[in-house]
Amino acid sequence: MIGLGTYAFFWQHSDQVPEPLSLVGAFEATKALGIDLFQICDYAPLESMGSGELAEAAAAARDLGLTIELGTKGIEPERLTRFLDLAGLFDAHLVRSMLYSPDTRPTLAQAEDWLRAALPGFEASGVDLALETYEQVATDELVALIERIGSERLGVCLDPANVVARLERPRDCVEATARHVKNIHVKDFAFARQAGWVGFTYGGAPMGEGLHDYAHLLATVRPRERGVNEPEVNEIVEHWLSWQGDAETTIRTEREWTRITVEYLRSIA
């Protein structure tokens, strides 16, 4: 299933614009595009909302007919327990996270201990935990960790754009993780020469115009071909869009990139 995530509304949510979009506003914008899935991922206000606000947001999603996924950074058992509780509130069946949080950088051994402590709750609740591929941990090490633990509820959130900063190739990342993928973050990416031809900038691109071989990802991971005995793998739209000089232009471009990406995903076989 195609979905939008909070990173597709990065600038619209930010305090850089005159009237930041609320979470429910993002839900409504998602539904207006004919999309029934939304991933609340690294959305800071979620962790400071009171119980009443959270209940209202969950009710709004249900009223709109949206399926919700959640996302955070870090795997401390107390954090994962908190997000498992939120998953119950939002009827979410997936939590995306990363090994590192802003405050913790566990060794692989510590990460394994923390995950083993938290996963029985996920297994009992039928909620998947998807660890994202990114530059701070080698893809092979992330896969090896998941395989050592061996829980059917633990897998990968595949974002091959991130690993380029570790000098890994996106295609290699896709192939190494394919059998463990539970969620996909969809964005295109490209290099551009900096002024004076001194170095490069690595950033976002409109979907289909950058370096992402998404057809290869679809053929390798098969997110749309899962059978009855294989859980669904959703494709979540997000962007690496830099500030466009002013709020109006940035918001317009962000919305346009979302439209382009959704149309691309709907058109590609």
Results as ranks from 00 to 15, higher is better:
L4M: 15
F9M: 10
W11R: 03
H13S: 06
S14T: 07
D15I: 15
Q16R: 14
S22T: 08
L23N: 02
L23P: 04
V24G: 04
V24K: 04
E28R: 07
K31Y: 04
A32S: 15
D36A: 12
F38A: 03
F38S: 01
C41M: 09
A44G: 13
L46N: 02
G50I: 08
L54G: 02
A58N: 13
A59S: 12
A60S: 14
I68C: 07
E69T: 02
G71E: 03
T72P: 02
T72I: 11
G74H: 12
L80M: 06
A87E: 00
H93I: 03
R96Q: 14
Y100L: 15
R105T: 14
P106V: 09
T107E: 08
L108C: 11
A111R: 00
A111G: 08
L119E: 01
G121S: 11
E123W: 00
A124Y: 08
T133W: 05
Q136S: 14
Q136T: 14
E141L: 14
E141S: 15
V143D: 00
V143S: 02
E147V: 11
R148A: 10
I149G: 02
S151D: 06
R153P: 00
C157P: 02
C157M: 10
P160L: 13
A161T: 03
A161Y: 04
V163R: 01
P170V: 07
E175N: 13
I184P: 02
D188N: 06
Q194I: 10
G203D: 06
A205H: 07
G208F: 03
E209Q: 15
G210R: 12
H212M: 12
H212V: 06
A215M: 12
A215Y: 14
L218V: 09
A219K: 15
A219N: 13
T220A: 12
V221Y: 01
R224T: 12
R226Q: 13
N229R: 12
E230R: 12
E230P: 01
E232S: 15
V237D: 04
E238N: 10
L241I: 09
G245L: 09
G245K: 03
A247C: 11
A247P: 11
T249A: 08
T249R: 15
T253G: 05
R259C: 08
R259V: 12
T261F: 07
Y264V: 13
Y264D: 06
A269N: 09
